[in-house]
Design a binder for these strands. Sequence first.
DNA 1: GCTGAGTATTCTGAATACAAAATTCCGACG
DNA 2: CGTCGGAATTTTGTATTCAGAATACTCAGC
Lengths: 216, 216
Amino acid sequence: MPIERRPLRDQIKREVLTRLRRGDFPAGQNINEGQLAGELGVSRTPLREALIALEIEGLIESQPGKGFRFAPVSPKEYQELCPVVAALEALALESSDAGYLAETAPRLLALATEFDASVATQAEIEQRDDEWHELLLGGCRNERLMDLLTTLKASLRRYVHLLIDDETEISRSASEHRLIAESIIAGDMAAAVSALKANWTSGTERMVEKLGDAGV
Amino acid sequence: MPIERRPLRDQIKREVLTRLRRGDFPAGQNINEGQLAGELGVSRTPLREALIALEIEGLIESQPGKGFRFAPVSPKEYQELCPVVAALEALALESSDAGYLAETAPRLLALATEFDASVATQAEIEQRDDEWHELLLGGCRNERLMDLLTTLKASLRRYVHLLIDDETEISRSASEHRLIAESIIAGDMAAAVSALKANWTSGTERMVEKLGDAGV
DNA sequence: GCTGAGTATTCTGAATACAAAATTCCGACG
DNA sequence: CGTCGGAATTTTGTATTCAGAATACTCAGC
C-alpha cells in the first residue's frame, strides 16, 4: 500500500482552491500571507509556493511589493477564456476514443434530459454541469490537454455561478447538452463539436452584460 | 519614468528559461537547489519559487522528497502538445484582426520565401520560425491565449531542435508557411487555418521516429 | 476640519536555520 | 566479487528571522 505523501504546498493549493470554489474569498481581495498561513496552520513558505502556483494558473495575481490578491473578475477575462476552453474541449472531443463515445453518448443524453427536469441548488447545478463535461471528455487520452482544461475551467468557474442563477440559462444549457449527445449518437462528430463550441460561447453576451451591470 | 522592479523569482525564472533554451540543462537532469542557487547568486527561497512556476508551466517536474528535475522529453509529450498548440494557434489566427492580417500577409509571404533560400544555423532557424509565427499571430488581442501559447511553445521548443537538423524539414516548413500566407492573401481564412494546423502536425510522425531512435 | 510631514506599525521579499528524508559511502559478510 | 546493513553526508521541505518597502497613524500647521 503506497502511503500518499504530498508536499505541503500541494495540500495548501488544494485547500485554497476548494475555499475559492466555496466562495470564501471575494474576487479582488488581497491576501494577507501571515493571516492565511495562520488559519491553515502552516508557515508562510509553503503558502507562498502554493500562491505562486495559483498565480501561474491565473487564479491569483501579484504586484511587486504589494503581495498577492485573488484575481478580480472582468468581462475581458471571461471573453478571452471562453473561446480557449471551447477550442480545447472541441479538440478533446475530436481526439476522443470512438468506442468510448458510442458507449457513453446514451448516458450523456439521459443525464442532459434528466438535468432539464430537476430543480437543484446552484452548487448542484455547477457540479452536474462539470460532471457532464467530464463524462463527455472522459475518452480523451491527452493528459496534458485534460490538465490544461482543468486549470482553465477553474478560472472560468468563478464566472459560471454569476451566470446560472437564471432559470432560462439552465434549460438552455440542458438543451445544448442534448444536442451534443444526439449528434454523437447520430455519428455526426462535426455537429457535436460545433454544438460543444456553441455551448461555451452562448453565455458570453449575457455574462458581459451582467458583469457590466455589477460594475466590475 | 517608472523604474522597473521585478521580484527575484521572475528574474530567476527568466534566467533558467534562457539557459534551458541554450541547452545548458540536459532534459531529465535533476536539479540541486543549493548548487543552482549558488551559481545564480541567490538563496534557495526565490529559486524554489521560480522552479515551482516552471513546474506548473510544464518544463520542470518534481517528486516529493526527491526535489525537482528538468522534464524529460518523450514522444508522448510531443504528441500531446502539438495538437493543443495547433488548435490554439488556429484559434488565435481565426480571432485575429482582419486589417492586421491583410497588412501583414505580404511580409509573411516574403519572409517565408526568403527563409527557404537562406542557409542558417540551427539557432537562427528556430528564431526565424518563432518570429514568423509571432508576426502571423500579432493581430490576436486575446492576451490570455497568447500567454498560454507562449508557455506551451516553451515546452515544445525542446523538441524542435531535434527536428530541424534535417534540410528537408526546413524547406517543408518554408513551403507550409508560404501556403498559409498565400491563403490569407487570397482571403481564404479556412484554408489558412487548416494550413496552420498542418504546419504543426506535419512533423509529428518523424519526431516520434527520431525520439524512438534516440531511445528516449 | 483638512492636509501633510514624520513616525510607528505591518507586511512582503529574501535569506538563513533546522528537522527529516534520501543518498552515498564503507566495511562486514556470504 | 557482489551485496547487505548502517553510519555519515547531502538534500529537500518547512519554519524562522531579517531588511526594507508599504501602509497606517499622529499631530502640527493652516
